[in-house]
Design a binder for these strands. Structure first.
Lengths: 331, 331
DNA sequence: AACGTTTTCGAAAACGTTTTCGGTTGATAA
DNA sequence: TTATCAACCGAAAACGTTTTCGAAAACGTT
């Protein structure tokens, strides 16, 4: 089977030329309304489906958007992807997903695939900002627009969509101080990631500004490391305030928080979170809502804007800052 | 910029024909080793990257695999996607992701996009088995191989990869009985989904077989509905055993389980789970490990096997059953 | 030297579109 | 009647590959 019908078949059947069919199907003004109607009806009747690969080759547009992320974890990325796919679909774009596993060569490979695949744009979340610059320059050399989301780079001229890591961490620090905590632990992600450093910076600077010195900052490599470190830190000192910079770290510390609670410890927990995980826990979590869906949607929106503005330098700004608000699981 | 070099440019520079370059780059035996080497070196030097769209048009292979799922939730799907992407990447395939939002017309639309995009294969998880059959037949008409994963259809001749829902539910039922439960509640997903019905069937049949009649089965529409229903059911009767058929329902019932525990209630919880969520909870959860990563990987593996076997009817079987094992979070 | 065989290469068609450009038609105005 | 001008349609090139087929060259055998 698979008698996939093409534009030439249609033309032959209707006794017109392929160009006429093409124009009719694409609503070009060139074709008389009555003939155009005939052609469209025949196409509908025979279940004609245009071949995206062929049209992509012809007009150098693939209608593909690539998403490159370190890893598809259960934290955060599901809602980001949902936001992206939701948005771009409206405009006829499709989504390709790549994981680079915190591996630079894998990241490079993914970008090369994107180039070969002629994607129209790339949405990127990278973990090694400095080392990734060459990869990004490959994209600009190939005229492929991209936006960095969630995690940025310290460099002008790249489009970025993210929260203000620095400010949000300050707010978190301030929040714990306001709640009367005396001994505070901040749990931060891998110190090689600039996002961790930015959040650490905001946190510690706010602490100093508040004249608060009784706090520790702890960078952890991953989930498992986080689990261990919380416990170790608490062995050294009994904290009454905990800041975790992500859902993953919130999850990592949860087991320990439960055990502390059983020992009657009062612990103030504040997180930066997508907003769902906190509701699974049986202890109170205040969190700054870092909305993954919104992030995905806004990043996609920005992406399409860049792609459509021939001269994207005309766009309002390179950096789009997402708002965050303080919420609570009311645990 | 964007002086993307193509095979014709290479040919011109080297003073050979495009066919020669093409063959050299694809290791055809047609070209003398020395010339082939020259060509490859020049290609490398000038950073030549083959255009996938063009080659896709020529040989009618897109090297794209599509994944169509109801919705990218934090439960289960992240690990499934990871498993798929991990596997297909090794063989040069790329992944496109579509959500159909439990909407049949959206599902149809996604399938049409796949056809237009000439994807080489489709991985599908569908919620409305009966109503989806026409969509699936569209795929067979267009000669696009597909495999159904996680959720199947009651029909012969489609490739499926999943766990044995019926048996696993029986095991879950048996488990609760063995643990000495006297009043058992089973929380099941949307009753329109055949997966819910299959799991319900296994559960209730095993109950009857064990001569156990003091149990309720409760189908819930979604997460929020699940939260409400658990509470309502417990108002009617004090259960001491709870079966939840998915991570989502486990999450939905968690809040209530905590509150029961505080009232001193002893509750045996058994779930079908991807294996991570249980470890976030502070109560004991036994679970039958439904490994999402493995599911994704095996589905992808099967997909590639079908695509490569010209005559896929030669494959060992249509139905691939994944093993599950009983584990516990040791809460 | 003549012939057969193998190796190596290139011309051209093909994949299914879109778009440019020119030609034909019919109507309108002079 | 003729010139003008839209409106409408088609031929052909182009996008960047791969593959088929035939030609030419190189080699070996008598």
């Amino acid at each position: 089977m698979s008698n996939r019908i093409n534009i030439r078949d249609l033309a032959k059947m209707l006794g017109v030329s392929v160009s006429t069919v093409s124009k009719a199907l694409n609503d070009k003004s060139d074709i008389s309304p009555s003939l155009a109607k005939q052609i469209r009806e025949k196409a509908e009747e025979l279940n004609y489906r245009p071949n995206h690969i062929a049209s992509g080759l012809r007009n150098k547009k693939s209608k593909l958007i690539a998403l490159i992320i370190p890893e598809i974890t259960m934290y955060f990325f599901p809602s980001v992807i949902k936001g992206i796919e939701d948005h771009i679909k409206q405009f006829g774009y499709r989504l390709m997903v790549f994981q680079s596993k915190n591996d630079l060569s894998e990241e490079l490979r993914n970008i090369e695939i994107c180039i070969q695949q002629n994607v129209d744009g790339v949405l990127l979340s990278i973990t090694h900002p400095e080392n990734s610059i060459p990869h990004l320059e490959m994209l600009v050399e190939n005229d492929i627009p991209f936006v960095l989301f969630d995690k940025g780079v310290e460099r002008e001229g790249f489009f970025e969509v993210m929260i203000n890591d620095y400010n949000v961490s300050k707010m978190a620090a301030n929040h714990l101080v306001q709640r009367g905590c005396k001994r505070i632990l901040a749990l931060l992600g891998n110190s090689e990631m600039s996002i961790s450093r930015k959040r650490a910076k905001g946190f510690s600077e706010e602490m100093k500004k508040a004249g608060f010195s009784n706090f520790e900052m702890c960078f952890v490599k991953d989930f498992e490391d986080g689990k261990l470190m919380v416990e170790e830190e608490f062995k050294k000192k009994k904290f009454d305030g905990l800041f975790v910079m992500s859902d993953e770290l919130l999850a990592a510390s949860s087991k320990f928080v439960y055990s502390e609670m059983k020992n009657g410890v009062e612990l103030n927990v504040v997180a930066i979170s997508d907003g769902f995980l906190p509701h699974l826990f049986d202890f109170k979590v205040d969190y700054f809502h870092h909305d993954g869906f919104l992030l995905g949607q806004k990043s996609a929106e920005r992406m399409l804007a860049i792609m459509n503005d021939e001269n994207s330098k005309m766009l309002p700004d390179f950096y789009l800052e997402l708002e965050v608000s303080l919420k609570s699981n009311n645990g």
